[in-house]
Structures are given as C-alpha cells and as structure tokens.
Design a protein around this nucleic acid. Structure first.
Lengths: 190, 190
DNA sequence: ACCTGAACACCGTTCAAGT
DNA sequence: ACCTGAACACCGTTCAAGT
C-alpha cells in the first residue's frame, strides 16, 4: 500500500504535476460539477492524460483529494457545534451549512451520499468521518429532547444531501425553505 | 409545426420504427436511467441511429414521449384526489406516489424538476400540467387549514422530487421516512 | 418520405515507448 | 520513477447518399 498523499519522497516534477492537477481539478469540478471531463482537467493542467491517471487512478480518488479538506472542515464544524448552547439550533445550522456546500458543486451531494453507502469508494472514509461527527450532534439534540428520537443520522444526512441537490435545480432559496420544512418536521412532537 | 405524435399520415414502416424505438426506450430508461445511451436504444430497436434522431430530435423529446403517459396519470390522480375526504392525506398520498414513481427511474426527478424550470424543454408541458393539478391539491389542503399556508407548490414539488432522488441512493425505505418528516413539517403550526 | 451509416468531435481508460 | 500520447472502445449528433 502506497500512501497517495506522500510527498517528500516524490520526485520534484511529479510533485509539481500532482499539485497542479489538484488545483485545476478543484476549479473545474466547481464550475462543471463532479462529472467534468478528466481529459479537460489534464489538458488545463498542461499534463498528459496518463499522468493524471498515474496520480489519481479513479475519478473518486481525484474527487477525494479535492474534497478532503472541505469534508474535514465540516467534520470539525460538527465537533465544535457540540458545544453550542442550543443543541437543536446547532444541528440545524450544521445541516444548512452542509446543504449550502452541496449546492456549490453540481454532483457533490450525489458523490457524498454514494460514498457513504459504498465502502469501496475512496471518498468513503472522509464522508463517514463527517457523518459520525454529525451523528453526535444529532444524538445530543435528541437527548436534550429537542429533536424526535425516531430519526437516525443517515436519514438526516440523506435529507440534507437532497436539499443540496434541489439547490442545483431550483436554486438555493427554495432549497433553504425546504430545509426549514424538514427542520420543523424534526421537532419533537406530541 | 408538425405534430410529432401524428400517426395516420405516417408511412407504415416509419410508424413501426417509431413505436419500436419508444418501446425499447421505455425499457432502457427504466433500467439505466434517463442518461442511457441513445445509440444503445437505436441498436436494440434494430434501427439506424439517424432514424432515432429523425423521430426524436432531442433526448428530451424521446423522454417526453416515454414519460407523457406517466405524467398524465399523475395529473389525473391529483385531480381525482381533489374529491378525497381528507385534503391533507390526499396531498401526502399524492406526494408519496410521485416520489415512488421518481425512484423507479434514475434521473427522473432531475428531468422533471428541470423541465418545470426550463420552458424550452419538451417535457415542460406535461410537467407543468401535472404540477398545476398538484397546486390545486395543495390549495385545497391549505384552505382546509390542514397545511401551512407559507409553502407554494413548486417548493413542495421540489421536495417530493428530492425525496425521489434520495431513493436512488439510499433506498426507498429511507426516502419514505424523509417524506414523513416533510409531511410533519407541512402540518399547520401554532 | 424515410432510412442508413459514415463522419466528426468528443469521452474514459490502458499501456507501450520513451526520458 | 515518471511522463507521454497513441490506441481502443465507447459516446452524441449531423448529414450525404441511398430507397
């Protein structure tokens, strides 16, 4: 097993190429979504298509490298939110942030949701870590009696991804209103 | 303007081809989703790729022909539901039916939601008609005081499509539970 | 009037040949 | 060790040539 993020022992030109591809991919994915042409990425990075595949053997591998930071941030945000005063508000705010991030890159919600379910996906680890953090956030709100207990984290997560997906088609505004509906549905009833 | 559904004045072989393409497309879209290969459809239908394009100049045109019946049925179902005893339950049941139908064909929710927003889409008319019917269903439930008044039909519709989308990734079961959350969020509050 | 398939411009992915 | 691009098998879409 080779650590793909390895750096120091990589040849200087290889290192440069890798970082160049990454920077370009970030831009292209943001503009065109997660299904953007890899050939296009290689071209813009001024690199042969084979080089791209050498560094990132699958689309998911490249996506993982591009999204890792963002997912890590979301995980950290969830951990921090554990200390907020209102468990319910903290959870809702986090969900909103997640669905906002989703709307910023077409295909992002699908990729993350997919990675969560598919343990083979290179995105699985990052996604799962983020969801674990979100799970704690949910549990706290449930224990505080502020969120109904018959929902699990995956469900909540899928809902947030769905809201992000809606933003791709109907715009962020509508997406936000739907998130509001969900938030009300999550409140403890009876 | 030529009526694309025209029949009697079409040459017999053309008519046969058209119907064959349609039947095959229905199957292929159901199996592989709305992004399935058109070339594959033509191949399976035993027809040149040019013939497919002659009958259906765009993917949307083919999709429209395939989905028209289903959308029309959903529209009719919404109209019938207007006479159900419980306006709220009728609306929720319709939404569930819509999201179920969505889950049956990958890409269906995206196509319909897209068509709703894009007036140029060949799917626009069918989709819009369905949503108009759903709008009446919503309005009745709101007038009966059973659904909050600060939601509009497009919002509700987008939410239902999102639930259908979720089913593509996380399964129907989870999708149904999310629809339940939405249903509770839709209830009149305060 | 209609059908066909070659043609064009793109993909994703692999791998022999080069440095 | 790494890079390159040709090669292969696919697309979507158009259009000249055929019946």
């Amino acid at each position: 097993m080779v650590e793909p993020t390895a750096g120091a022992e990589m040849r200087a030109d290889a290192r440069r190429n890798r970082e160049n591809i990454l920077a370009v991919a970030r831009e292209v994915f943001d503009q065109q979504g997660t299904e953007a042409s890899l050939r296009d990425v290689a071209r813009r990075a001024g690199v042969g298509i084979g080089t791209l595949y050498r560094h990132f053997p699958t689309r998911d591998a490249l996506l993982e490298a591009v999204l890792r930071n963002g997912l890590e941030n979301m995980r950290a945000a969830a951990d921090e939110a554990l200390e907020a005063s209102s468990p319910r508000e903290a959870l809702i705010a986090w969900l909103q942030r997640f669905s906002e991030r989703s709307g910023a890159c077409r295909g992002f919600p699908a990729s993350v949701l997919n990675a969560l379910v598919d343990e083979q996906s290179e995105l699985h680890a990052s996604s799962a870590a983020m969801m674990e953090a979100a799970t704690r956030l949910l549990a706290r709100a449930q224990e505080a009696g502020e969120i109904r207990k018959d929902v699990d984290a995956e469900e909540l997560f899928a809902a947030a991804a769905a809201v992000g997906w809606v933003a791709e088609y109907s715009g962020r505004k509508r997406a936000e209103r739907i998130l509001g509906l969900l938030g009300d549905g999550l409140a403890t009833t009876g």
